[in-house]
Every structure is written in C-alpha cells, then in structure tokens.
Amino acid sequence: MNNTIDTSEKKIRSLLEKVTDPEIPVLSILDLGLVREINVSDSETEVIITPTYSGCPAMDVIRMNIQTTLLSHGYKNIKVTQALSPAWTTDWMSEEGKRKLKEYGIAPPNPRQQVCNQKLFEAAEAVQCPRCDSYHTHRVSEFGSTSCKALYFCDHCKEPFDYFKSH
C-alpha cells in the first residue's frame, strides 16, 4: 500500500462521514450507526456494516459508495462486510444525526422502550411534530416512503410528516 495514505481508523471514519444514505441524504452512515467496525491491515481495509432493514435497497448503494469513496482516496483491497448480529437499532443513531433529521423535516426516532412485548408494542407512541414541536399528532400509516419511516399527521399545524420509526 502507498506509504502516503493514512490508514488510521480515525482518517477512514472521517472519509465515511461523506458517505450518506441515498434515501435520506442529510444522514451519513456514521450518523445512522451502520458502521460497526473498521479493520485495517497491510493488505486490506475492511469496513463492517449492518443493514437497517432486511430489504432496504439503499444498502447495496451504500456498500458501493463506501468502496468508491475509499478507492478515490487511494485505498486498495477494500472489503465491505455485512454483519447481521447484533441487529441494528435506532438507538445507535447519533444525537447529531437526530438533530439533522429533525431539521430536514423528519421526526427522529424515540428512544427504544426497554420493556417490550407485543402488547406494549401495540400501544400508541407519542411522536413530536418536527415542524411545530406539538405532540398532538396521529399515525396515518405504519409504513412510509422507505422501510424505516411511518406516516404521521400533525393535528396542531395540520402538516403531514415522516417519522423515523424507533426500531
């Protein structure tokens, strides 16, 4: 590997900061908590990522963007590995990420409830409107424009909005 390339984890992280979610371009994959591990050896740079939802089509694009970003900075033999366990949770999203989401108009995920069973899961969750901060909102649909979002409506400012599901 070229000696002038900084192979520290810190440097690689700063490059991955530029890889964003193609469906929510304000969030980097670090904000989302998708990067689990970075392993650098003399012969290889490995980035271990975990998918958000099993069928999320953004994952293939993200995988490719990690490759091209690192390649364009001179890294060679890049391996992007997918790890399913432990399963991704919105609790891994950074505070910075949640702030950016809200600014972008998507309600950030609530912290995940620790005592979770089917009954509690079915209980309605209070979701704050990202525009007017009111909790006077209701769910329109469990599912939204992407796997990770649900559709909500604000009964206060009368605007519909996306909620990044707590997962």
Partner: peptide, 8 residues
C-alpha cells in the same frame, strides 16, 4: 413495504 421486508 411488507413485501420488501419479506424479500429482504
């Protein structure tokens, strides 16, 4: 969306 999860 449910389809997508199942295919995933």
């Amino acid at each position: 969306n449910i389809s997508l999860d199942l295919i995933g």
